[in-house]
Design a protein around this nucleic acid. Structure first.
Lengths: 201, 201
DNA sequence: TAAGTTACAAACTATGGTTGTTGTAAGTTA
DNA sequence: TAACTTACAACAACCATAGTTTGTAACTTA
């Protein structure tokens, strides 16, 4: 019965695509639902069948990106036969690069993400707990491989997370765009890993 | 010949005091030079004899606070006969608490400071290099006391600084006001110190 | 009945004129 | 002549209102 001939999932995807295009074009705080709808060839009211309100549509853009990050990090976690601490470095580097790349060549999208950083949106929470679960997993592996020592992997992951904040937090990533921070990232991570390789409980 | 009967330094200090009061009262972005001048019993134009422009006056407020921090941290560095790593913990805790206290009970002043965080004002640069010099000093002491090992104290201080960013950066401090972060701060610092106690060059 | 429309009210934003603030130049006083 | 004032121009904040955009309800179609 849809006159567009598309399923709900398809039109949702297209709506998000059009929103991304509008953000890039006009800036994220100047996106108009009426323009997005025009792109899809429907009336603006039709968008409300798929998204609760404008915020939900904008959120969907960030959510898509966060899920992409989750997945590329998950791919690293799943890799077999690699040193757990090397995987952890790869994980941290990938996260750092993802944020850096975003702010560099998609600043308008990054802005919307940046504003979200302190927001208590459920999908941001979800993203955070996915990341923490992955990191805890890597810590457990490292403990199993005798590369780390300690009784509380959750706490160890939290320590690593906080210590690496300088390389992940939106504001801080944006602040150091012109510098090559990867060698420093490596050094910070290595010093923490060495410390956590001794007894830490 | 001054009709106020005050020296330049005195009136400068009073102007900063009045600006602080105005910020607390009205919010930092609503400070009016005319009100500040009224407090001092002079015309607003008189302020231009002591401050280049409004920005310079607002900056003076932040600068005063940054210098206070520099001094209280310096007091820690100067303390004799204490373990260097304990001093470093005290230093990090004091910096963390200073920022936390500011945002808690002087949010309007903190806001102005927060905006400055990425700004390239010379007195902010000055503050940063003072802090780094202090931290390098603590690292050198710790190396001398065989608590740390490594050939490059500057790099080690940088590592420690970046690793502790989560507890010092204005945005991050403001984001975790409701939590007790000191135990975590301690754990992050300890793990880095342990790592840096092994060979790191 | 899910996917859409049109039509309309409420909320927001852009505009332009008015008022208030900032910054400067020329003048005043101890 | 340093510390200040008054007077004024340039600029920014404020406020009313006209114009858009957002969100909803009642209606249409495959």
């Amino acid at each position: 019965m849809p006159r567009t001939g598309l399923t709900a999932a398809e039109i949702k995807k297209k709506a998000i695509d059009a929103t991304v295009a509008a953000m890039r074009e006009e800036g994220f705080d100047k996106v108009r639902l009426t323009d997005v709808a025009k792109q899809l060839g429907v009336s603006h009211a039709a968008l409300y069948l798929h998204f609760k309100d404008k915020t939900a549509l904008l959120d969907a853009v960030s959510e898509r990106w966060l899920v992409e990050i989750d997945e590329s990090l998950d791919a690293i976690c799943r890799k077999q036969g690699k040193e757990p601490t090397e995987k952890m470095l790869a994980w941290m580097l990938t996260l750092h690069r993802a944020k850096r790349a975003k702010v560099l060549h998609d600043p308008e999208l990054y802005k919307s993400f940046d504003l979200l950083a302190n927001a208590q949106k459920p999908y941001v929470q979800q993203h955070m707990s996915t990341l923490m679960a992955q990191l805890v997993g890597l810590v457990r592996e490292a403990i199993a491989a005798r590369r780390l020592r300690g009784a509380d992997p959750d706490k160890m992951a939290e320590i690593l997370w906080e210590g690496m904040m300088a390389f992940h937090h939106p504001k801080l990533v944006a602040q150091h765009l012109d510098e090559k921070r990867e060698p420093l990232l490596r050094l910070v991570l290595e010093s923490m890993l060495k410390g956590l390789a001794l007894k830490t409980d």
